[in-house]
Design a binder for these strands. Structure first.
Lengths: 191, 191
DNA sequence: CTTAAGTTGAACATTGGTGTTCGACTTAAG
DNA sequence: CTTAAGTCGAACACCAATGTTCAACTTAAG
């Protein structure tokens, strides 16, 4: 898609990608990262950074968009509509906990720095997949119905985040994260 | 305790208290709050603020100390050593979720702004109460032993935090928080 | 009532981040 | 090889936050 408008040089394309990569890491593991730091991490001059992303705000939005898109892809690949809701949730956790956590952190940051914009709407598209899955589970009778749906979604995201933090802090092996998550989440969500 | 050293005027005492109160609120619900904002919130001039707390760092430490002490008190009142571990955990949740969450937020902030100092040690004193409780539960056979202890503690704090956020966002009534927490945590922790 | 302790706003220096402009240099693309 | 697109460092203006100093004012305490 889109080498249409003002076809960029391969050069520029490469830098933009490097910047988005660096910015994703920077924003997720050190939210207050400066533009200088991001430029350095991307191996790019400050001016180049501003050439492509005229402001911190624009950059954050770009990273967010990209991550939302990626999250959408990953979720789709986990086929949340197939099989029992529990199985689908297990698949989703295995394939997506990391991406979903990135998405969470970026959204927190965006909400703080940009104010709750229409980002909330784009955010919805991702959260709704989880919510839809849980609702289906309730209809199937395998997910508890005695707590607000909103809280169940929060619980999922919250533990996802906790696991990611533990992995990041070296207190949990990345390969074990999905197992631990599953072992904790399922008893909390099952009816 | 301690009107010994350089006995302060009632005046000053009152302001210090007001500052600590305002700073606690500011730091927990808007971590990047400026000194100006805190001074205004405390109803005090900027100079007065600096007179009592020579730097943002010192102020943060003072607030942290105070909250750790308060958390210690509240935990002690919940008598974590009495009755079955499950009952003790329930008592702890009912009386302390809010204070424990304040403690968590401040610790996160301190870790970011001050670097992991010997604060980690003081932090331990609070976390250890929860860990001790869970360990006792394991010995009694009522808390699961198939996951790292560290993760169980993280789970407690994580959901505590999630509930506090939901309350703060108006999506969960404060009076319901303990019930919801209990209903989610116990199935996740029980063996 | 006296006075020492405490408060205050205004003004200042400093720092660190943001965003811009410029002119020289490098590189992809035809 | 030519040239337009892209990069780069240096220098700039700007802003917001931190922390300090001062001189006038207010207030608690004896």
């Amino acid at each position: 898609m889109a080498t249409t408008e003002t076809r960029r040089r391969a050069d520029a394309e490469r830098n933009i990608a490097a910047i988005l990569d660096a910015a994703l890491v920077a924003f997720t593991e050190e939210p207050q990262s400066s533009m200088v730091a991001i430029a350095r991490a991307a191996g790019v001059g400050r001016v180049t950074l501003y050439a492509h992303f005229p402001s911190r705000e624009v950059l954050l939005e770009a990273v967010l968009d990209r991550t939302i898109a990626e999250a959408g892809e990953v979720i789709k690949k986990a086929e949340p509509e197939e099989g029992s809701a529990i199985e689908a949730l297990q698949r989703l956790l295995r394939t997506s906990w990391h991406v979903l956590d990135q998405h969470r952190k970026l959204f927190d940051l965006a909400q703080r720095e940009l104010g709750s914009v229409q980002l909330r709407q784009r955010h919805r598209q991702v959260v709704d997949h989880v919510e839809g899955l849980l609702t289906r589970g309730q209809e199937e009778g395998v997910i508890r119905s005695d707590l607000p749906m909103n809280w169940l979604v929060t619980t999922v995201y919250s533990l996802l985040h906790a696991a990611a933090e533990d992995v990041n802090a070296g207190q949990l092996k990345a390969e074990d994260a999905a197992d631990v998550l599953e072992a904790t989440l399922l008893p909390a969500l099952k009816s």
